[in-house]
Amino acid sequence: MSAEPILKVADLEKEIVLHILDDKQVAPLRGVSFDLAEGEFLGIVGPSGAGKSSLLKCLHRTYVADGGRAEFRTEDGDWVDLLSTDERTVLDLRRNELYYASQFLKAPPRVPAVDVVASLLTARGVEIDEARARSSETLARLNIDEELQSSYPALFSGGEQQRINVARALVDPPRLLLLDEPTSALDSENRARVLELLLEARKAGTAMIGIFHDIDMLQHLADHVLVLEDGRVSQYGTPDDIDLPDYIDAAVAEFA
């Protein structure tokens, strides 16, 4: 792939020290390195507890990394280290270029679904009417009808909440999208809809790092797959290079 690199992760380390549990240490990441190009999709697989979510959270700065670098090329062409750059820059990138879609929707209470999505656009300077129209369109493509759109997501099923979350991620695809099992509660039809939107975003140049327990998804989407085991990269290659069922079945079993 000749696309420009957008992210260079080197020796990423993360320890979690739980003072309240007698300083018990957990070490989810022990030096993770990889590169990512514009429009590239990197799938992350590995057993539960391998540090998959921690990796995404460190890149999103929801977690504080303890070592390494994650150089991100911004829209302006500057390279910034996501792990160490100042909080203001992180907030700015999160607003405009970087989005983390988790498994569970964290929507503010008492806000209609359409506005949960639209707020992302208005924060980027889109007028509210246009933001709502675009949000509504994306939600519709994810099978969220008008009635649901005007309801509060807190009352939704897990699958509906996940689709709101995906809509937030994809209504205006960012330059780097971090996907943390965003389809775990979806049926096959809705997964197909999500896949369609993800493919469009990838085509438009969005780089993605995704944790999926769905072989179909990975085979359709992933340019590369990274296998994380005990906080280390054990394998890296194309989906064909790696025996995916080995990792995914185990994970699904644990998840269930």
Partner: peptide, 21 residues
Amino acid sequence: SGLTDQILEDPQHEYTQLLVN
């Protein structure tokens, strides 16, 4: 001090961990 989601999800100080938990 930090980003609010970081404070809530990855608190560094013993006191904050207690508070969050």
